[in-house]
Design a binder for these strands. Sequence first.
DNA 1: ACAAAAATTGTCGACGTTGTCATTGCCTTG
DNA 2: CAAGGCAATGACAACGTCGACAATTTTTGT
Lengths: 339, 339
Amino acid sequence: MVSIVSVAKAAGVSNKTVSRVINGEPHVTEDTRERVEKAIRDLGYIPNMAARQIRSSRSNTFGIITDYVSTTPYSVDIVRGIQDWANTHGKSILMANSGGLPEREADIWKMFQSHRIDGVLYVTMYHRVVDPEAGDVNIPTVMINCRPQTSELLPSIEPDDFQGARDLTQYLLERGHRRIGYVRLNPILLGAELRLDAFRRTAKEFGLAESDLSIRLGMEGPVGVEENYVFAAASEILQQKDRPTAIMSGNDEMAIQIYIAALTLGLRIPQDVSIVGFDDFRTVSLALKPELTTAALPYYDLGFQGAEWLNSIISEEMVRANRRVISCKLVERASVCAL
Amino acid sequence: MVSIVSVAKAAGVSNKTVSRVINGEPHVTEDTRERVEKAIRDLGYIPNMAARQIRSSRSNTFGIITDYVSTTPYSVDIVRGIQDWANTHGKSILMANSGGLPEREADIWKMFQSHRIDGVLYVTMYHRVVDPEAGDVNIPTVMINCRPQTSELLPSIEPDDFQGARDLTQYLLERGHRRIGYVRLNPILLGAELRLDAFRRTAKEFGLAESDLSIRLGMEGPVGVEENYVFAAASEILQQKDRPTAIMSGNDEMAIQIYIAALTLGLRIPQDVSIVGFDDFRTVSLALKPELTTAALPYYDLGFQGAEWLNSIISEEMVRANRRVISCKLVERASVCAL
DNA sequence: ACAAAAATTGTCGACGTTGTCATTGCCTTG
DNA sequence: CAAGGCAATGACAACGTCGACAATTTTTGT
């Protein structure tokens, strides 16, 4: 392998001078610099990160731990956000997936340490509370899309489920809807309570009574093997004598079944019933016809800003543990009509 | 940081002996081994990969290059498959995303080289032909979910779209369907042609005429901003006077619109019209009611076997470039009825 | 023109690990 | 009991890079 030494020999300078050129340090004549750069190009020299790391005890690498990946596929945008930040700032990404198994997670932390990772991004694929195996380890960590259970020691960055659901509810209310159905997310998801709470409060603020709201559970049980009542719940809501004019869905995926339930009952969307989702899971929200009005989870930004935050923690050595929240932007499409 | 030297000092042996213990080499007394292991535990020593790599010029790390990530979110299972193989075989994964930009891809290759990666897995998020920027670089590479355009130099591993579509078509034919609609995938996807071809051939084998098949284009245009005719195409197919009794969808996502089109026309699924998808994109195929019969893309296995293959290429130094194909398993659910 | 200051370049060692080879001590064999 | 063999352990160098410092050359000030 071609090393700094071979370059130095080729350019007729010392290896230290080559090092200076590579790192853009001052105190190199333009002439020398060019000669070295030519040698680098000719030999196809590429710096060896491992050697650099050994010298500087900085790896310029972040680790990503994810839990499940497949249950909410769209949240891979978190990872894309992280990568984009990392790429544009000369950091590398070492990635591992725990599958939700604690022992695997412990192995991953060990692997990260053996690579002398600068920091860790702990990413969950749905918004939830976790208890990371990190505790004993002293690597800067930012939690993304989740928050630590026990300690307030770790900084976390999360979507603002409450604001998103508030905006959606308000959107419906402003368009004249006064009887609204709600199909709840699986209660084990952190978003479930936040969204429902925002829905209830906002409806109340606008003067609706609890009896104007038809709230039903859509799913429950462990993620991946949950029981699914959405179709039945939606059918039931829509067959009430004082049928709601709009239904809020816990998320976009569940909205598929609400669409099917409505259509099966011969109802037109949005003329007979308006529907809104949550997440802006575009594979679904754009495939539904009419296209679904929803609130977009800021996955990409969670990742991007999480990486940025981690970096500032690492370089400034300050670990002000706290929580950041990113808003969910309302995406207006065609599934709601004004009354 | 605690190094091999501190462990050696603590255990009262030379650093070489510690090295032997770590790597499970012979010629160490049980007594010594235990003393060293105790010291390792006490000090919390973890081997430094960078130093190891510098010595051995082997990084035990694979690189993953992905193109787009968000368009077909479920294909992250490829990455999960790779990770699972890597984790259980003591390899690490360095990951980067090109976003489809060639200059970014070139940077990534450089980054990989600077980490002295052992091999690269080139992963695309939908099945297609690519022309990787790798050419000049001499790192063992396996292409996953895609195949090289120009050269036959790189080994590739792909899903068997043809077999999957054949099995699905056969499944419908065996259940008595003789007029079948087909909504085509975007033609720029490699699967589009393979699946359509399998559909046509299998139908012909069973004695159907071309006039028994209603084939319509569902989407076209660049991935991510394609134009979407699925709803219109499905509506049109289902309003013909000799309406097909079954529709094959280019993929599961498009099946959403076919469901909506059918229901909007007052047709029951599957009594009036049977529907099959492709991909087994479970967020969709399980959310549809009735649940969708489809063919599962073997994403996880593509990743897992791809990693395994890459490893064997690296260790055996043999680069028999060729192509492997993994079959798509038919998943029988409730969206098809026998006539 | 000469000293002082600044710019340029080089020498050397250390980071943590392991391969090579050397050393020590014990055991087998005749 | 000597010679040879083998097991256990250690000393040392080298991998590629860069920081500390030294050496050399050029520029500046008077």
